[in-house]
Amino acid sequence: MGPVPSGYASGADIAALLVLLTEFAMLRAPQLRSQVRLYGFQSFVVVVLTLVTGAVRGYSDLYILAGLSLLLKVVIVPALMFRLLRQLDVDQLHHPAGGGGGSMVLVAIAASAFGFFVLRSLDFRSKVLPTATLSVSLAIVLVAFVLVILRSDVVSQAVGFFSLENGVSIVSMAIAAGLPVVVEVSFLFDLLVAVVVFALIMRAHHARAGTLSTEALDRLRG
């Protein structure tokens, strides 16, 4: 039994856990719009974590990063996704999330447990964030993968990819908080490119199949 964590450490852990729980909520969200909303909330938690970490640990670079992420991930990306969904005029899928809701969650729990155990055996230590936050962020990345693999609609896959970036940004904050701001910003730029690409895919897919569900792709067998 370890010592009781300090206020900052447990706050960081709880923030990371919130991000992980939103990831699980995305897994089960029935509506595409609520998924985008969840992504906005998740990004907001990451921004708050970045700000607090910057303040507590004294990395002023993190303020710039937090400001840019707030603008991009909390405002611009969700707004673009909402606009796209409005234009395509789809919200509810015909088969929301497929069958077996419980088993999807169980698979995701197994994936996050795997992440926790892997990180424990690596014996990584972070100077900036508590160890639990690091393992939670690895779990976030893995659950995002599960989301992308198991949900069969383009929006979930796009949102899964974006939230993967949220997980990665917590990891990068934990192991390399002193990273030059240019590198961090280039991550965000990656995200912007991904948004453009996914928007194109969504439009193209919707134009061809008339739906956002990727199950329609089965019909394209040659």
Partner: peptide, 23 residues
């Protein structure tokens, strides 16, 4: 069942965070 799965998820993560993350 989904509601109960959510409760199970929270308990499960609690065990993982404590046992593996030490928090």
């Amino acid at each position: 069942t989904e509601y109960l799965a959510a409760a199970f998820l929270l308990a499960c993560l609690g065990v993982l965070v404590f046992y593996v993350g030490g928090a």
